[in-house]
């Protein structure tokens, strides 16, 4: 059974349709990459799968292991194994990272959380207010740490490689590998592709343009074209409307 199925999912934000009939099937332990230009709806798609309140489903269904979760609140989805590393998590004054992490460990259990914290270099800011004054890399690593504490079946990572240094990208890539090795499926949103080069395995790449998944293919097929020609011209090439390139 597929871990996640999106069936013609349409997503609205403040009454406006941002995602149009997106379909996707993610099997256990697969790594999917969603790429697209700025404003194409990548974050909205992940928010809708997570069930964040700034989005509403205006068509289609979301199935997790065959169960319709379309109308479940986000905390129920989290308990079922859906997690999201937010692109821009909110700065929460007064709430320490340690407090949130401890509460999550109580909820989800964790045998290696301190190792995780050390690996992701977040152990030094456990006593800091959540995301307040964090650098870009600190925010991304903390988000990944919190995602990993959830022991998710599905980890959705929203641009974990944007605004971070090379060391952090390596660390994040290793964490994604670690997630996958634990049986977690990953949906990785990126629009620069820096992280894709560091992953040993990617199962599918989806191109999301103007709210539609316009192309799905293997990484060997899609990534070189997009990296070289960009999204629009790359799409023309992939769909046979433009020139082909040799791999």
């Amino acid at each position: 059974m597929a871990l996640l199925e999106l069936e013609k999912l349409s997503v609205c934000v403040e009454g406006k349709r941002i995602i149009e009939e997106a379909s996707m099937v993610v099997e256990p332990s697969e790594v999917h990459v969603v790429m697209g230009p700025n404003g194409s709806g990548k974050s909205t798609l992940l928010s809708a799968i997570m069930g964040l309140k700034n989005t509403s489903i205006c068509g289609g269904r979301i199935l997790l292991e065959g169960r319709d979760i379309t109308s479940l609140p986000s905390y129920e989805r989290a308990k079922l194994g859906v997690s999201l590393a937010h692109q821009q998590p909110p700065e929460i004054k007064g709430v320490k990272l340690r407090e949130v992490a401890s509460a999550m460990i109580k909820k989800y259990g964790c045998s290696d959380c301190m190792i995780l914290a050390k690996t992701l270099l977040v152990d030094n800011f456990m006593n800091r207010d959540l995301f307040v004054g964090f650098s870009g890399g600190e925010k991304k690593r903390t988000e990944l740490f919190l995602v990993m504490l959830q022991k998710p079946k599905l980890a959705m990572l929203d641009e974990p490689d944007s605004g971070v240094d090379v060391e952090s990208i390596d660390l994040i890539a290793r964490s994604i590998e670690s997630l996958r090795s634990r049986g977690t499926s990953v949906i990785l949103v990126t629009h620069i592709g820096a992280i894709t080069e560091r992953l040993s395995r990617i199962d599918k790449v989806h191109l999301l343009i103007q709210g539609r998944i316009v192309y799905t293919g293997s990484p060997d097929e899609v990534l070189p074209v997009v990296m070289k020609f960009g999204y629009r011209k790359g799409l023309e090439i992939l769909t046979g409307k433009g020139e082909r390139i040799e791999h």
């Binding site: 309140k53 986000s74 905390y75 989290a78 997690s83 937010h86 929460i92 949130v100």
Partner: peptide, 9 residues
């Protein structure tokens, strides 16, 4: 919303 996405009611 953020905390709810982490599993908090």
């Amino acid at each position: 919303d953020y905390l709810m996405s982490r599993g908090f009611t």
